[in-house]
Design a protein around this nucleic acid. Structure first.
Length: 288
DNA sequence: AACGTTGCCAACCGCGGGTGG
DNA sequence: CCCACCCGCGGTTGGCAACGT
């Protein structure tokens, strides 16, 4: 016999994640690390399939995510990388620290495509739009025309691991060495050169950016309850969560700590913890 | 104010490669 | 070797908010 089925989808929840589910997932991952997504929902007490948990974590909950609109520099990089890699969003994302493939894909489809067309550039071929090209041209014909200039100039640099990577066992203070004295462009250039696997996913400046970015949006599940100035770190601290769900106490944070539900903060080897410890806004919540 | 349209993006779906029983 | 599963990927969709009429 083979393995057991991944998940019988009966009774599993779909759709937007609630704040409570988010917290359960964050708590579980930060405590136990990422492994075996299949087991995560069960162990974390979630009525979701592992796939959904993985997606939620990688695309939204990961602490190293930069949120908000892509900067001009990032946009330029996306365009450049797309011209070389095509729709390989994950490859593109791997060169933009803190950005997810989904985010880049969405940004491409909603913003960059239009921008390029406006500039008279075909977003598929990255070549000037010919006047002859009609909108109603058959897609098959269109595809036949396309010659994706595929090359992997960046890839070759991924062969030899250099620099640092953010792992569960890494200390963010060491990890930020590469990034801390660099401006955005320099940091990005290093990421481009080495590949994101080899450089810290979070640098001190990114963190500042995360903290100060007031336009940052919250998840769909929480945004309806959040004020506009909610930041990612605030979200991470579950300020939008309904603490009252966890007891009758007015002070939900204390209540959760009392009930030993904040075990994630007990660990001392997770790099994100350092990030939060050094963050002013985090300390204002009295969590540390 | 009410309704329709558009834009945005989180989440889902389905596929394929890799892996293990 | 086969089959079932895990995982990651790219494409697509659904729901909400903003905008226009």
């Amino acid at each position: 016999m083979g393995r057991q089925p991944c998940c019988d989808k009966v009774g599993l929840k779909k759709g937007p994640w609630t704040a409570e589910e988010d917290m359960k997932l964050i708590n579980f991952i930060l405590t136990n690390g990422q492994c075996c997504w299949r087991a995560v929902p069960k162990l974390a007490g979630l009525l979701r399939c592992g796939k959904s948990c993985r997606l939620r974590w990688t695309n939204y909950l990961r602490p190293d995510l930069k949120r908000g609109l892509l900067s001009d520099y990032e946009e330029k990089m996306v365009i450049d990388l797309h011209s070389q890699l095509g729709n390989r969003w994950s490859k593109i994302a791997s060169h933009l620290p803190g950005r997810t493939d989904n985010e880049i894909k969405n940004h491409w489809n909603t913003h960059i495509k239009k921008k390029l067309r406006k500039m008279g550039i075909d977003p598929l071929t990255h070549k000037p739009l010919s006047n002859v090209e009609q909108e109603d041209e058959e897609p098959v014909k269109k595809l036949q025309k396309i010659q994706m200039p595929f090359q992997e100039p960046v890839e070759k640099n991924l062969e030899e691991p250099t620099g640092y990577c953010l792992t569960k066992d890494s200390n963010i203070k060491n990890m930020s060495r590469l990034g801390e004295s660099l401006d955005d462009d320099q940091f990005m250039a290093i990421n481009l050169e080495y590949g994101v696997e080899d450089v810290p996913l979070i640098d001190s400046e990114s963190l500042e950016l995360i903290c100060s970015n007031s336009t940052m949006s919250s998840s769909t599940s929480t945004s309806s309850n959040s004020s506009n100035d909610s930041s990612f770190l605030k979200d991470l601290q579950f300020t939008d969560f309904e603490w009252s769900n966890y007891g009758n106490s007015n002070n939900g944070v204390d209540n959760i700590i009392e009930n030993n539900m904040m075990s994630l903060w007990d660990i001392d080897d997770f790099s994100s913890l350092d990030l939060l410890l050094n963050d002013e806004s985090a300390s204002t919540f009295g969590l540390f």
